[in-house]
Amino acid sequence: MTDSMPHQVDILLVDPDRHGVASDRAFRYISTAAGFSVLALLALVLISTTGAAWPAFSGQGLGFLTSTTWDVPNNEFGALAFAYGTLVVSLIALVLAVPVSIGISLYITEVAPHRLRKPVIYSIDLLATIPSVVYGLWGVRVFAPWIDTRYETVAGWFDSIPVLNTLFNGRPVSGVSFMTAGIIVGIMITPIITSLTREVFATVPSSLREGAYALGATRWEMIRGAVFPHSRGGITAAVMIGLGRAMGETIAVALVIGSSSVVTARLFNPGDAMASIIANQFGESTGEYRAALIGLGVVLFFITFLINGLARVWINNGRRKAGVT
């Protein structure tokens, strides 16, 4: 048997140490328990938040997910307007962040001279180190007032084009709007998408690159013919993880979205999102109102868990496939 050697090594490393002394076994049990702590954490989060949100779920029924009415005095809590806001902000953020992130990753892996790579990577990491609340502060105090009047100019450009004249329209309140929130979140999710796509591009075998060059391809043709086809799954996963981050972004959005529970296609109008409304209204809430806000958190948890889960399984399958070939 040619594979007996690695097989035995595996047994040595994985099999439980049955003859170990007590301290050795204790160490194993403790570390196993620590490994399962994530599972315990997940279960506790689920049970605890769902339990506290139950009055709102049972009180509102399906209306919690399908109604756009958020009427606190009348105890009517429909989350749809906020789900819509979360979706709009996340989509704007993705549309801005994904092309830029892919551009940066390609620049780092394919174009940049060696001594420039580290500084570029460190700068992007720096962007990820800046806390969310600082982006929010800058957004509401500097960026929103600056962009406020420019929204009108942009709306003017698209005035006579159908569809776009609805999208690029609206009345921001001193600069805060869906669009402002989307831009800020776009800046914030760029580092994570960049680092994930960079990892994906780095796994493209150099034989593919060399093959494309040998056929006379330019660099761009090589990227299109060799790098992109090989990275499709990885890029999709990176975009989904970025989407998950964007949907969960709370504090910066709470400061620059404008707090208005209206469903509108006008991106320059103020709105509200699921995470941001929790941050903005939790303090003043009581009873079923508070339960409804916790319920928003539970829904958000489920959505982001699903998106991230799919992306991770996707990445792992891709890795396994890459490992086989």
Partner: peptide, 8 residues
């Protein structure tokens, strides 16, 4: 779990 929103 690393992707779960911090507000949760």
């Amino acid at each position: 779990m690393t992707g779960v929103p911090s507000i949760v």
